[in-house]
């Protein structure tokens, strides 16, 4: 803070426009020096990488031997690749498992918590532990919990359901993706609860007072006040949930290994498999551009169709 208190230098203020220009070019130079490291990084690892990725997607290339230019063949090959469609389907199923349950549970819990209860900070600390923990670590833990014979989950389910529960969570090819989804919901519950809690805090009390004066029941207050005013949070969670589902890799790799059944191969996992297991760099790059397009289209459609139902009155 010594900068502020030092006496102003007796500098001539009369140099007029010349000073203004040199001041401006000094500012431009300084700005570019400040921006240099990030911009250099951006040019190499984002702009350059995007261009390179587009170029590689027109190659047949195993990283070792000479590449071959094949034009759009990698893209047209997708149409005849059943695993491409299966992976899209698996990712869609993953969205259906994780997004609605994350939203419903997150909203219910946030509603239950929406009172000035003591000890909230301690509880919040606990809720965030799964969110903070690396996916790799919790995937290994859940692989153990999903164990058919000795897993704690089947034991727990046997306790609350009739008969002995012996679900082969990870061995059944179609169930494995459900298992990965359940773990995901567990891991991210603290996040959606926190976002809904923040959303609830933003609703002014006089909305409820007015509703109460009109004789609205608790359900009506939820249906016509709380729920509409939480739609920005819900919308955000849907958009982020779809994007997140297209990124799933760690949990599949650590729970199911490097060759899971095709019904558990998520889209991102398939990209990794093509690129880093089968060394089809060109095909993997094409897959990643298709992913980019899909995420772009899905997000655009969400904004176009869901956004209409979002109430931004408080925003």
């Amino acid at each position: 803070m010594s900068v502020v208190s030092s006496p102003p230098p007796a500098r001539a203020q009369s140099r007029g426009r010349g000073r203004g220009r040199s001041q401006r070019s000094r500012e431009t130079l300084a700005a570019w020096l400040f921006l240099a490291p990030s911009t250099l990084h951006f040019v190499v690892f984002t702009v350059g990488a995007l261009i390179a990725s587009l170029v590689i997607s027109t190659w047949q290339w195993d990283l070792v031997t000479e590449h071959q230019f094949i034009g759009v063949d990698n893209y047209t090959a997708l149409v005849n690749d059943p695993q491409f469609f299966t992976s899209l389907g698996v990712t869609g199923i993953y969205c259906l498992i994780t997004i609605p349950s994350g939203i419903v549970l997150g909203m219910l819990i946030a509603l239950a918590l929406n009172q000035k209860l003591r000890g909230m900070a301690t509880f919040r600390f606990v809720y965030f532990i799964p969110y903070v923990a690396p996916v790799a670590a919790v995937a290994l833990l859940w692989r153990w919990m999903y164990n058919t014979q000795y897993g704690i989950l089947n034991w727990f389910l046997s306790g609350i359901l009739p008969g002995d529960v012996n679900i082969d969570w990870l061995g059944d090819p179609r169930l494995a993706i459900v298992a990965a989804g359940i773990m995901d919901v567990w891991k991210n519950l603290g996040w959606s609860v926190t976002l809904f809690t923040a959303g609830l805090l933003a609703i002014p009390a006089h909305y409820y007072e007015a509703a109460e004066l009109d004789g609205a029941s608790a359900w009506q207050r939820f249906r016509y006040v709380t729920f509409p005013l939480l739609t920005p949070t819900t919308f955000f969670l849907v958009v982020m949930g779809v994007i997140g589902s297209f990124q799933v890799f760690d949990s599949i790799y650590l729970m199911l290994g490097d060759t899971p059944s095709s019904h558990a191969t998520t889209y991102n996992f398939y990209i990794w498999q093509q690129g880093f297991r089968y060394n089809n760099m060109g095909y993997a790059a094409a897959l990643s551009w298709v992913l980019f397009a899909i995420i772009g289209i899905v997000t655009f459609l969400q904004f176009k169709f869901l956004n209409k139902r979002v109430n931004y009155e408080l925003g």
Binding site: I56, N268, A285
Partner: peptide, 28 residues
């Protein structure tokens, strides 16, 4: 700071947030 092209550069950075990391993973 004020300099020519500031807003354009900023929007380019901002737009790159939409790029999924897989696209740049292979070239990296």
């Amino acid at each position: 700071m004020t300099f020519r092209g500031r807003d354009l550069l900023f929007y380019v950075f901002l737009a790159s947030l939409m790029v999924p990391y897989q696209v740049t993973l292979i070239p990296a």
